Simulated scan of single mutants.
Amino acid sequence: MAVAEQHTPQDSVLPPAARTGTRVPTVIVDDVHIVYTVHGAGTGKGSATAALARLVMRKSSPNVRRVHAVRGVTFTAYRGEAIGIIGSNGSGKSTILRAIAGLLPPESGKIYTDGQPSLLGVNAALMNDLTGERNVILGGLAMGMSQEEVRQRYQGIVEFSGINEKGDFISLPMRTYSSGMAARLRFSIAAAKNHDVLMIDEALATGDRAFQKRSENRIKELRKEAGTVFLVSHNNNSIRDTCDRVVWLEKGELLMDGPTDEVIKAYEKHTGK
Rank of each mutant, 00 (worst) to 15 (best):
I137M: 12
R153L: 05
L172D: 14
I163H: 00
G139M: 10
P62F: 09
R79Q: 14
A69W: 10
G84I: 01
R66I: 04
A142F: 14
F75K: 06
N128S: 15
T95V: 00
A99I: 03
R66D: 12
I85H: 05
Q116M: 10
P173S: 09
I157R: 01
T131H: 09
G87N: 05
R66T: 12
S118E: 09
A142D: 14
V122A: 12
N123G: 13
L104D: 06
K93D: 08
G84M: 04
N89I: 01
P105R: 13
D168L: 07
G92L: 05
V73W: 07
L104V: 11
G109T: 02
S91T: 10
M127H: 15
P106I: 00
F160R: 04
F75Q: 05
P173H: 04
L126Y: 10
I137D: 08
S91A: 15
I170L: 12
L138N: 11
G156L: 03
A125R: 14
F75S: 08
V70M: 05
F169S: 11
A77R: 01
E165I: 08
E149R: 06
Y154V: 04
L103E: 06
V64N: 14
E159N: 08
T76A: 02
T74C: 11
G132N: 07
V73S: 04
L120E: 01
G72V: 06
N89W: 02
L126W: 05
E81N: 03
L141K: 08
